[in-house]
């Protein structure tokens, strides 16, 4: 195996290795988690985070960043807990409108060559405002089907694991294995070459933003299924979590290098980091700090590998 390919393999394995390490440590500290019930509890919240992270990763693929995903997930959670339950048609229309709005944002950013950071920053206010309008005070109730799905107890394998595998597999097939997926990623790696081969970069961007809007909406619905009720601030921290998770999972900021499987693993790792600390009997206040520390550690390891690669 050649040097750079080995380094890439190592870098690719980094997310999985850190997850395995963390999981091992948790099992060691708290053997009871090594059960159907324990895993279910540990990983429950990973499902919406994994979806939000995949959404963020889709935006990262085309060299943009979405600072509004957290408030968007909040909004879709609020819609799911109110309209989707009471008047399903209206709920679906509203969620579809969100997806279309994402597509329009992609078009705006591409056509006017705007920095995605500021546009999505502005949108984060808009989504949050809409969420408050939909659900002024915490409350609502998850639609029964969603609730039933999220609390489903399939035999042998806990539901969160199945859900994460399905999410990772679908995203992987769509982005890494489909013929158009190659074009989408290529547009992140060398947009000029993709345009020169006759593809529309506008279409690429709109596709990616709409896909992100769709997956983000799923994250909101899944979240409500777990918490049963919603509030407008329910997922605000998902913005930072999703960026951290995608980066942890091996996605890069520019150049269209992304990994859907890695993104899901990154999201699970961040979810577990919190539990890990509580099992260490450390102050739960360190939760966020641990997530940050893991992020820095992984980035440092990646930088080291990158440097070794360069020194050859």
């Amino acid at each position: 195996m050649t040097g750079p390919a080995f380094a890439r393999l190592l870098r690719g394995a980094l997310p999985a290795l850190s997850l395995a390490l963390l999981l091992g440590a948790i099992f060691y500290l708290q053997p009871r988690t090594m059960s159907y019930f324990g895993l279910n509890l540990l990983l429950n919240l990973a499902v919406p985070i994994a979806l939000a992270t995949v959404a963020q990763m889709l935006i990262l693929t085309v060299n943009d960043l979405d600072l509004s995903i957290g408030s968007y997930v909040s909004l879709t959670a609020c819609i799911a807990a109110t309209w989707l339950r009471d008047t399903p048609l209206l709920g679906l229309l509203a969620l579809g409108g969100g997806v279309l709005a994402y597509g329009a944002l992609g078009a705006l950013i591409h056509l006017r060559n705007l920095p995605s950071i500021v546009v999505t920053l502005g949108m984060s206010f808009v989504w949050l405002g809409l969420a408050i309008l939909v659900l002024p005070t915490p409350g609502g109730k998850a639609p029964d089907i969603v609730r039933a799905l999220m609390t489903w107890k399939p035999p042998y394998v806990p539901f969160p694991i199945i859900a994460c595998v399905v999410i990772a597999a679908l995203a992987h097939v769509a982005l890494m294995r489909s013929p158009y997926g190659a074009v989408l990623r290529g547009a992140g790696g060398n947009p000029r070459a993709v345009a020169r081969a006759g593809w529309s970069l506008l279409r690429v961007k709109v596709t990616m933003y709409m896909a992100a809007g769709f997956v983000g909406a799923l994250a909101g619905i899944a979240l409500v299924g777990l918490t049963t009720s919603a509030d407008a601030n329910i997922a605000l921290r998902y913005t930072l979590l999703s960026i951290a998770g995608a980066i942890l999972g091996g996605s890069e900021f520019v150049g269209g290098r992304v990994s859907p499987i890695g993104a899901v693993i990154g999201a699970i790792t961040l979810t577990l980091a919190a539990s890990f600390l509580s099992f260490l009997r450390l102050n739960p206040d360190f939760q966020i700090g641990a997530q940050g520390a893991i992020l820095i550690l992984v980035l440092a390891l990646r930088a080291l590998i990158g440097r070794a690669e360069k020194d050859r």
């Binding site: 013929p179 190659a182 074009v183 990623r185 020169r196 081969a197 269209g256």
Partner: peptide, 20 residues
């Protein structure tokens, strides 16, 4: 150079040949 560095050789062929 008109290759996308983040794609494989085969995937780059696909970019140039939409009929694949």
């Amino acid at each position: 150079g008109s290759l996308c560095p983040n794609l494989t050789v085969a995937e780059n062929a696909r970019i140039e040949h939409p009929s694949l």
